[in-house]
């Protein structure tokens, strides 16, 4: 795998008060758009943004299992777009397959930097 020297662009997940993870993102003070990234301006309108945390729970919008080799990864691995409650859509690792519509919870960030969710209940 090519050595990457740029800063890690993935969303940062911190531990929330109730055990789940929270994504450190931004909310636009002009149009209320939310993003899972600490970007300097709103991607929807260019307006000013303020720090905001989203999660820990959300709903799977769609999901797949990657079964082909990807540098630095061992297939198969599950991925999902998760719509966080009152928050943005985030791409998360799921381990195995998860059904669309499943309720999931962010797992506080691990050493590998991946956003990860687990099915609730």
């Amino acid at each position: 795998m090519t050595r990457v020297t740029t800063p890690d662009p993935r969303p940062r997940v911190v531990a929330g008060a109730e055990g789940g993870g929270l994504v450190e993102g931004r909310r636009c003070t002009a149009c209320a758009e939310v993003v899972a990234f600490a970007w300097p301006a709103c991607p929807a309108c260019g307006g000013p943004v303020e720090p905001a945390r989203f999660g820990p729970e959300g709903t799977v919008w769609s999901a797949t299992v990657v079964r082909v080799p990807v540098p630095g990864r061992t297939p198969p691995y599950g991925m999902a777009y998760v719509d966080l409650d009152d928050g943005p859509r985030v791409l998360a690792h799921t381990g195995g397959p998860v059904p669309i519509g499943a309720r999931v919870r962010l797992v506080p960030g691990g050493d590998d930097g991946d956003v990860r969710v687990e099915v609730v209940g």
Partner: peptide, 8 residues
Amino acid sequence: PEGRSGLA
């Protein structure tokens, strides 16, 4: 971000 996350 999604590339770094392994989104082929």
